[in-house]
Design a binder for these strands. Structure first.
Lengths: 209, 209
DNA sequence: CCTACCGATCGGTAGG
DNA sequence: CCTACCGATCGGTAGG
């Protein structure tokens, strides 16, 4: 069970698993998690459909593992780099800029992975919906929490509303992604940057909820 | 060709066609335009799959006709009622409120039809993508045009940026729909209303781009 | 990880 | 609008 031959097989399985998941996340960002087919991802990676199924058990399990992979990529690309700057307004700005950069640079070919699959599963009950909703909520709560830290640090007006601010910031981020992917509109990201800076910069920080 | 028997058949075909399209729009708002299947809509309406195909020609033609139906419903529900109030700030406000009401009241069971199908087809080239993009652009251009009218009427600062204002307003509308459908969050629409009023109300109209 | 298979469902056609 | 059919593709299983 633990000899080198079995270890080699396990290691190979892990590598294949990661290749499948990365490809699955790319496919899902353009075609959706339902549009993601076992046969399709297998064909792309030159393995058999049953090979994919042997590693993941069922299509739904592949969908769930794909979402977890996208969460990990999002964390590495957007969240973790912002944790190197101090909590508060600077970190809030950094999170927004990183998210726009993640969308703009097409880390996933269909733009933001979560915008794509949220709209697909928002009205469909089940474990896939629930994992997407929890993953998205984690992000919006981070934005809101960071806004609250900024308020506590005196970087926002004492009567500022962190939940309202988070709503507006996330709205700008999502809208920029949608405009860019649907219309290929180059003004999308600059408009989001302008809107975000108006909410976060000193000159307009007097703005109240 | 024009006797009563043929007329009766044509009239029956039109009625069936409308029933199919209204049902197809409901299905597409939750399951997407690809999730919409000829057999599925036929089953729901107790007609044969080939009956649907006889009336629409192909699945893609059904998808295109479904989008046109949703556009018509959106116009009747959101745009036309706002045309009874004067152009400018009041109409801009009315358009936003009507859109929130259209989303909140679930005219389509999956929330805003266009948010659902935009995310589905934004990264897929073809005539369905193009019709969705054109329909969505018509709406955002109406918002921008109305903001421009408000500026000309002196209801916005002379240096206000209608395109930037439209970006922010549409962002709030889309975000409220997404939060409500994905998380069933009751705070979504009030937050959008708050954000919109801050952009459009006298007290904060001094806000500049 | 593989081949070989299963039933179900898909979009679409033939012919009426 | 219908019945009867087509090939293709789907997710999944058997057995290795």
């Amino acid at each position: 069970m633990t000899d080198t031959r079995t270890d080699g097989r396990t290691a190979r399985g892990d590598r294949t698993r990661r290749r499948i998941l990365r490809r699955a996340a790319d496919i899902a960002s353009t075609d959706g998690l339902d549009g993601l087919s076992l046969a399709g991802v297998a064909r792309d990676l030159d393995i058999s459909k049953s090979g994919v199924l042997a590693l993941f058990g069922s299509k739904q399990d592949l969908q769930l593992a794909t979402i977890r992979t996208a969460v990990q990529i999002f964390r590495e690309r957007v969240v973790e780099p912002a944790m190197t700057v101090p909590a508060g307004l600077r970190r809030l700005s950094e999170l927004c800029e990183n998210q726009l950069d993640y969308s703009r640079s097409r880390v996933f070919p269909g733009g933001c992975f979560f915008s794509a699959v949220s709209a697909e599963f928002d009205a469909k009950p089940g474990p896939v919906h629930d994992l997407i909703a929890a993953s998205v909520a984690e992000w919006t709560e981070l934005i809101e929490h960071t806004a609250e830290q900024a308020r506590h640090a005196g970087e926002l007006a004492p009567d500022a509303d962190p939940a309202q601010l988070a709503f507006e910031l996330v709205a700008f981020l999502d809208r920029a992604n949608a405009m860019s992917v649907l219309h290929d509109d180059p003004t999308a990201y600059p408009k989001a940057m302008t809107a975000i800076h108006h909410r976060l910069n000193p000159r307009t920080r007097r703005y109240r909820s």
